[in-house]
């Protein structure tokens, strides 16, 4: 373990490892190949997980060693403690984690236990003139970038913003050194008990967090017609949003307005009804994965962004759609 100078902590999700962890690994592998360092990936595995399969996959991204961790109980505090104990022993140059909710908590516990600083939400990794590690992070609401270089005395704890780096299998056919499962029993069991999980209710969720959205604009015409938007949202389990016009007419509240004077959303599905697609609105929905536009004007800019354009009257389409669902 001692020769592994860069550690990457991977995060589990139901189907395997989180995409953001692969982004971090790809970026760290790029640095490591320039510096000639070895990368060790740590991840919290379930006892029945197929470690070999995960290992082969991680190797193709550039990992040199894989250490499955088995921490009881599996809270961010105990995981952080186990990683910090290992880091005190092996003294890696840096520990990288993707800045997710779990990732930030674990990184903070590791940094707190190592009594070092935490470089959170980094946007750039690089090497200095003497091959020392440099990291850049944004401060003051992402307006100023500050770059730091490692002096190489302490282990750096770094979290990296997800969604910035490409995922690339740059090392096909590379072999991985599968290390023995490391079991850690926390001495002081974490007294924080997790009782349950409350899924967000689409009717009350903040539209920034919503996975599906139905948005109405001026083309909806009246508040009466706007109720159709709510009905469709109910059918799809989506949240309701609106344009500036919809908000000015009192059809939606300010916290549901999308665009320059409202919020920026990133849903999987967005159905845009009676929205022309002025830039002041569309700048708030650039991150949308799948956009359906319903507008009578076939030259409306919203159709240029849409995956499905329907040139038709939005209230009528929605009415028919609801009728179709209700009749089965």
């Amino acid at each position: 373990m001692e020769q592994n100078k860069l550690w990457v902590v991977a995060e589990n999700v139901d189907e395997g490892l989180r995409e953001a962890s692969f982004e971090v690994l790809t970026e760290v592998a790029r640095l490591a190949s320039r510096r000639g360092d070895q990368i060790m990936v740590l991840f919290c595995s379930a006892p029945d997980a197929d470690v070999n399969k995960i290992g082969v996959e991680l190797a193709s991204y550039g990992a040199d060693a894989l250490l499955p961790l088995e921490v009881v109980p599996n809270s961010s505090r105990c995981v952080g403690g186990a990683i910090a104990d290992l880091a005190k022993e092996c003294r890696p140059d840096a520990i990288f984690i993707a800045e997710t909710i779990w990732g930030h908590d674990v990184a903070a516990w590791v940094a707190a236990k190592l009594r070092t600083t935490l470089l959170s939400n980094c946007v750039e990794l690089g090497l200095g003139p003497d091959q020392e590690l440099t990291v850049t992070r944004h401060v003051y609401s992402d307006t100023v970038a500050v770059k730091y270089a490692s002096l190489g005395e302490q282990t750096m704890v770094i979290t990296i913003q997800p969604g910035l780096f490409n995922v690339k299998k740059a090392f096909p056919g590379k072999t991985i050194n599968l290390l023995e499962r490391h079991a850690a029993q926390a001495q002081n069991p974490d007294p924080v008990q997790v009782l349950g999980f409350i899924k967000a209710d689409p009717r009350t969720v903040d539209i920034v967090d919503a996975e599906r959205l139905v948005v109405g604009g001026k083309g909806m015409g009246t508040a009466e017609n706007y109720k159709l938007i709510h009905e469709v949202a109910e059918i799809l389990g989506a949240a309701v949003g609106g344009t500036r016009v919809a908000r000015d007419n009192g059809w939606v509240t300010l916290d549901r307005q999308i665009g320059q004077t409202g919020k920026t959303v990133a849903p999987e599905l967005l159905i845009s009804c009676g929205v022309s697609g002025a830039i002041q609105h569309t700048m708030g929905l650039k991150e949308t994965k799948c956009l359906v536009a319903i507008n009578t004007d076939k030259h409306a800019p919203i159709h240029k962004l849409a995956d499905l354009s329907i040139v038709d009257d939005a209230p009528r389409v929605l009415k028919e759609f609801i009728a179709k669902i209700k009749t089965g």
């Binding site: 059918i235 799809l236 799948c290 499905l308 354009s309 329907i310 389409v317 028919e320 009728a323």
Partner: peptide
């Protein structure tokens, strides 16, 4: 993006329904 051109034969609601089913939203 490559758009699926609105086909005049199929009504708007039909298109919307088919699209949502095809993409697994419904």
């Amino acid at each position: 993006k490559k758009k699926k051109k609105a086909q005049s034969v199929v009504s708007g609601s039909e298109q919307l329904y088919n699209f949502l089913v095809k993409n697994g939203f419904l």
